[in-house]
Design a protein around this nucleic acid. Structure first.
Lengths: 198, 198
DNA sequence: GTCTATAAATGGATAGAC
DNA sequence: GTCTATCCATTTATAGAC
């Protein structure tokens, strides 16, 4: 049964990422992954001897995705609003299958139980993401696309929190919450988005 | 060792609430509670036969706290901003011991693993809290304390998300994040808070 | 109400055959 | 790389004595 088992490792990480976003790191087991891939727990231990190893691989996977996507978005010749939109839709694409939240939010809530190596990775990932959003906001201010009071860094934090919180909330209360929150964020950024409606 | 064991039940809920906010519902055990109270697991099963029973009791505990505090805040003859401040400080008092997040946020991330009875309770609690914040915002708008674009409900969602997200985030990145985010929220509500600084 | 003892299931992890 | 088999610790939960 070695159908492309060269990328078994990636398959495992992919399934684990899904489980992370639905159940949280401490709430899925090697057996869950094994069942989905129709292999045994022992096979997973071959690729990732300890769960901590898998956890670090998960962080690195998110990191790679960030670097790729953020780079692409910043390199684009597009407006700041479009960049932010792409991020939001990226979050959606990445996070919003059925019942999924942002993987970093998921790790944050389990922070107290995570091995130090993962805690460190998480901190770096959060900061990287925050810097990315801040860059977009700065660009939007300079180009007169955005206008808001307060300092850029605080506003960037608020935007990130709102996106992730909306995702978390909408899993419990329905998807409308997400759309509604995103619209309100644009309103607060001084970017008139309501005109696009019929 | 029956030192006031009439309220043993409350002691158990109290300890469980603390563990919920630090580790999450699926990430603490009866043994954790037992150790903190210097009793055995079996004693806890006497009060709460299944963990689901304890979970529902946790929700009811939060509900009681909400009803008491929200009622007190709304009954106060105080400005909308003061009411919001009291809520924020209440969240802090309630949530912000070392490494604690909002109990409802904690339950939200575990939603996929929670028994239906708890899911239902959580939904009601969230809606109750959201309505409370919306009431304060409406009051602030009417009294010309607040001024912001977009509709009140969306703004209320955003305020709640930001508070809870900031709590979650500050556990990983330090308490300054919380203060910073709260300040920015007041800025966006059109309530000038920066004047209080020296 | 609390205890000891124990059941039954699950989760992380390892050894060794194929 | 994957499997079977097994180990050990933990967790939820129950039975029954005090």
């Amino acid at each position: 049964m070695q159908t492309r088992s060269k990328n078994r490792k990636e398959q495992i990480v992919s399934v684990a990422l899904d489980l992370l976003q639905v159940h949280g790191f401490e709430n899925f087991s090697y057996l869950d992954i094994a069942n989905r891939l129709s292999i045994t727990k022992a096979s997973i231990h071959h690729h990732f001897p300890k769960k901590e190893n898998l956890g670090v691989a998960l962080c690195q996977s998110v990191k790679q995705w960030h670097e790729k996507e953020f780079g692409k978005i910043l390199a684009n010749r597009s407006t700041a609003k479009t960049k932010l939109d792409t991020y939001v839709n990226g979050i959606l694409r990445f996070s919003c299958g059925k019942n999924k939240i942002c993987p970093l939010s998921s790790l944050q809530v389990d922070i107290a139980s995570l091995p130090p190596a993962m805690q460190k990775e998480l901190r770096l990932l959060d900061e990287h993401e925050l810097g990315f959003i801040r860059d977009i906001l700065v660009m939007g201010l300079k180009g007169d696309e955005f206008s808001f009071a307060g300092d850029v860094n605080s506003q960037a934090i608020l935007v990130v929190l709102a996106c992730k919180g909306a995702l978390q909330y909408s899993r419990v209360h329905g998807d409308e919450i997400f759309e509604q929150t995103m619209n309100q964020i644009y309103v607060l950024l001084g970017s008139n988005v309501s005109q696009k409606e019929a």
